[in-house]
């Protein structure tokens, strides 16, 4: 299997690649359109800010490449948010695979923003995630979230219930960081590799 991590200005590429190394999986890190297009599976990582990252993707013509992919794609954290239609983070139009709009958490007295730390997953019916992940904890760091909707595969609650994982056609996505989520994260990456 040819696995590719899309190389761009995302902060967590190193951590994602170490997680795949620990799984004993071979992969390539690249921003070459043809290499990405010929991969069997693609990982779209992400840590950063939406508007500058979308600008980077457009400048490097990676936006069209990602939209056109037909093989399984996994978006992680900001990667998941960028797969949505629009983000409230600096009013940014995104890739539009998922129709939802990415919203900002409203801070509450006992709910600080960013949502940072370990929180539990509730899987939806027919989720692509391993059933063993039900009620397991994953590591989140984010100030923006995707509401729960038709393509939600797992939800987590923080001020509101939100999408912790999503799936539509060949696109898979997680809001948390599987590469930093201990054994639960391993199960998530394996769920994608088996998808």
């Amino acid at each position: 299997m040819k696995l590719v991590i899309i190389k761009y200005n995302a902060g967590n590429i190193q951590s994602v690649s170490f997680a795949l190394e620990r799984l004993g999986v071979d992969f390539t890190i690249t921003d070459q359109a043809e290499v990405i297009q010929q991969a069997d599976k693609v990982i779209f990582p992400g840590v950063g800010e939406a508007s500058t990252t979308m600008q980077y993707l457009r400048d490097h013509k990676l936006d069209a490449v990602i939209r056109g992919l037909r093989q399984p794609v996994l978006g992680i954290c900001l990667g998941m948010q960028l797969l949505c239609r629009h983000s409230e983070e600096n009013d940014t139009p995104c890739l539009g695979i998922f129709e939802e709009t990415v919203k900002r958490f409203e801070p509450q007295p006992d709910k600080k923003v960013p949502h940072m730390g370990w929180n539990n997953l509730t899987l939806t019916a027919n989720s692509w995630l391993d059933p063993a992940l039900e009620n397991k904890f994953a590591y989140f760091v984010h100030s923006y979230y995707v509401p729960v909707y038709a393509h939600t595969s797992a939800l987590t609650e923080y001020t509101v219930p939100f999408s912790a994982a999503m799936h539509r056609d060949n696109f898979y996505a997680v809001q948390f960081h599987p590469e930093k989520s201990a054994e639960a994260g391993v199960l998530v990456l394996q769920s994608f590799l088996n998808a």
Binding site: Q14, S15, F18, E21, R22, V141, H177, K180, S181, V186
Partner: peptide, 28 residues
């Protein structure tokens, strides 16, 4: 550390510039 450890970690000590931080985050 990043290669072997699958939970988040913070590093510190003597950091005083953007140039100090970039290699640490790039390292994982």
């Amino acid at each position: 550390i990043a290669r072997h450890i699958n939970i988040p970690f913070t590093v510190g000590g003597g950091i005083s510039s953007v140039a100090d931080v970039a290699p640490l985050l790039e390292a994982g």
